[in-house]
Each structure stands twice: as C-alpha cells, then as structure tokens.
Design a protein around this nucleic acid. Structure first.
Lengths: 227, 227
DNA sequence: CCAAAAGTGTTATGACTACACCCATGA
DNA sequence: TCATGGGTGTAGTCATAACACTTTTGG
C-alpha cells in the first residue's frame, strides 16, 4: 500500500480512502490487493499511499485512489474522516494516515471502474474480512460517519444516481442506517423536507406499476435533520 | 510554535490544540505567544508542536500543551478535530497539523495554569484576533465541533466543575451554543434525561435563594440528544 | 422590605409512530 | 387474472416552545 518509508526522524504521512457506493440495495467498498511480505501476503486493504510534499492530504487521497484503485472519477465526494497515528499501525515504519470517506453513485462509474480485477475489488460492506494494517478500524469509523451524515445531511446526493425512485432512496437509507423504515412515514418526511423534486417521468421496472422519478433539489450536501 | 522543520522529502507532522474552558459565563481559549520573524512577530497562536516518532498525535498534543502552554492537567478531555494540510499553511515549510479540541473545567486548573503570563493567555473566544498560521481556521472548526458535541453528547461533563447549579449548566450551554435557552424548558429536559443528579446540598451566592447543586450522573461522554 | 437569583406548570402546536389496503402495469 | 412493486391517510402519543409568577435568602 505505502511505498517503503525511508528511515526518517519523523513520521511519514499517508492518505487512505474508504470509497463506498450503493449497488443492488447494498453498500460496497473498494478494496485493493496488499502483498507486502513478510507482514501481509494476499491480503486486502484500503486504497491509499504517501502524501507528496506538493499536494494536500485530499489531493493525495484522490491521486492514490486513481493510481491504486483505478477510480479516476472527478465527481467523487470526499470528506476527511480521522487521522490514525498509532505507533505500530504500519509494521514497516512510522506511518500516520489521514483517512477519507469517499462516496460515488454506482452509475457515475465507468465500466472499468465498476469492474473487479485481481488487484481491485468492490466488496459488500458486511462481507469485508480482515484487512491489512489498521484498515478494519478505519472502515468502522467510515461506516459510523456515513450513518451520522446520512441522518443529518443530504449526503445521499453524492451516492444516489441522478434520477431515482423514492423506493430506491429508502433502500439507500436502509442499507446505510441498517434499519427498516416505514414506507409511508419515509415518503412523508422526505417530501415535507423538500429535498427532492418529482420529475415528469416514470420508470417501469418489470411487470409492476411505474414509479415516479425524483432528483435532489440541490446538488450540494447541506445540514438538515432527516432521520 | 513549531521548531524549524528540516528540509525533508516529506511533510512534517505537528499537533495543535484548541483548549477551552468556561469562566464567568464565557468561553476561553488558551493561546501562546508566537514570535518567529520574519513571518510572525508578537503574534498569538494555538499551542502545538511537532509529533515525535515515538508518540501518537494525541500524545504530542498533550506534551506540547504542557510544554508550550503550561497546562499539565491530566484530566484534560481531548478529541481529534481535523487534519490541516494546506500546502502553505506554515510559511516556513511543509507542516501538516493534526488539530485537537481539548476541554477542561476552570477549577480543575491549578493557579499556575489559570494564570496568564507574557507567553500564555486565556482569551475569551469572541475576543480572539488574528492568529498565526491557519489558526483562526482551526479555531473556527473547534467552535463548530464543540457546538455540535454539546447538542448531542454529554460533553459538558468535561468542562463543568464537579458540582454545579442548573443555572450554571444552562449558562454553559448558552455560551457554547450562542443561544438563549428558556429556563423552565431547559430544566425539564435536563432532568428528564437524567444526566444529572441533585446533591443533598445547596449553595448560597450573595443575598439570593440558595441553589441546589448537581453532579453529572456519569463521568463519561455519551451520545444523547440534548438540545 | 428590597434586591437577587432559584424554582415551578400549563397549553398549543408540530413531529413521530404504527398500521393496511388499493393502484397501475406487464407477463 | 395475477404477480409485482408503487402509492396513499389517520389516529394516538410524545416532544417542543411559549409564556410569568412565587420562593428563599442576605443585605
């Protein structure tokens, strides 16, 4: 994951990213293969890498996401999560990591970005096993942050497709919050808050009644109590 | 503030702390003198300094608070705030700062810690002028975090004295949230939440009716919707 | 007896929860 | 015509906000 850090008098800085998307009513994270004997063989971990002196932590996170995880999408939402500085978090040396939470809509990804390769995979959140370094801890912090943001901001703009049905939106909340929501109450609340606008179209899916499509009223993430 | 960073291939890591307390119905921050010509002369800034390879970011924050701001209290509450990595945030070189929010009760401080010196001062939050580096930005993030924590956790345990009156608690919320609260509604809510316990004592202050003293039910900071 | 701060209750409004059936469509 | 998912309303409960006067003490 990180290039072998030179033996310096100070800690080396890295940026690691938890990139999530939603597909088929499930949350997925992007993982990359980590193969760094003797500590990690055939392991998986979060995409990340060293921060160059000429870039900010977020720029480094984006660059490494592109280089290591092959995700170059520029519409990626990123927010800083936490800085992990435990002394032994990287067995190869003193590496402090600034962790980011990143979100993107599945269909804002290119076919290449959607694809799994031997080096990169989209893994369902609750199927993630033991990761390299302290990445399980980072992942846990990311899930918590995502839940709290979903409850109190319009952060789902960044992970929903451009147009969606209210059922899809409800499913997104449900898989992020890990709760069941009442369909009627959910719709009432979302519509009352006026965070989405109905479009003059419907989408038919299989042999069922067509669903009204909606779009977020604003593309910005704003603070508003939702759940 | 930070020792002159050697010219390294990578950024140097520092920890800066926004230490707050409440005194006389007002929020105060601890500042230290910054005198580093040619960039900063007779300026003030947040206490902070480099992170040693053998310590975590939080340990470095505590150590620098003790060394630079003469605050050695071990009961200090600390929570990581944000990592500031703008390339030019320190005019002397590439320094990335992990910022912390720290809280302590005014009367948990020793007389030395309460005192101002030519090098260190307690400054009322809204009387803070232009600080060195990007420290105004850090301060702003700290105020915002403090407000949000006060509204949704029992974080005031860490800044209230051991025993206090409900009026004092209300004043603490008011100066943190920058709002006026209704006395009756505030008391009802706080008592219903059972986050404080009345003590079998009262405190008389001047020629007025004595006030019941309270203590937090738990010394831990827990999540609970308060305001 | 006066000044100062402590303490206390009610009402109206809005939010939240729980809950079950009909609708529109394609197969 | 049936299977599938879309869509809707009400009633009970609880939290919130607005609001003013009495109590206890020391000076």
């Amino acid at each position: 994951m990180k290039k072998s850090p030179p033996k310096l008098r100070f800690a080396v800085l890295a940026a690691d990213t938890v990139l999530c998307t939603i597909r088929d009513k499930r949350l997925f994270v992007r993982l990359i293969a980590v193969n760094r004997p003797p500590h990690f063989r055939h392991a998986w971990g979060l995409p990340g890498g060293l921060i160059h002196p000429t870039e900010t932590a977020e720029e480094a996170a984006r660059r490494n996401l592109s280089v290591k995880a092959h995700i170059g999408a520029s519409t990626l939402y990123m927010e800083q999560l936490y800085t992990f500085s435990a002394i032994d978090r990287d067995p190869r040396g003193r590496v402090v990591a600034v962790a980011y939470l990143a979100l993107i809509a599945w269909d804002a990804l290119s076919p290449q970005e959607q694809r799994d390769t031997p080096e990169t995979r989209w893994v369902p959140m609750d199927a993630v096993g033991a990761l390299a370094y302290d990445h399980n801890e980072i992942l846990k912090a990311a899930r918590k942050r995502l839940r709290s943001r979903a409850a109190s901001t319009t952060i789902l703009v960044t992970i929903m497709p451009d147009e969606f049905t209210l059922t899809e939106l409800e499913n997104a909340y449900e898989c992020i919050m890990k709760t069941d929501l009442d369909k009627r109450n959910f719709r009432k609340k979302i519509l009352k808050l006026k965070i989405v606008r109905a479009l003059p179209k419907k989408r038919t899916l299989g042999r069922a009644r067509p669903a009204t499509l909606y779009r977020f009223a604003s593309p910005d993430v704003t603070e508003i109590k939702i759940l």
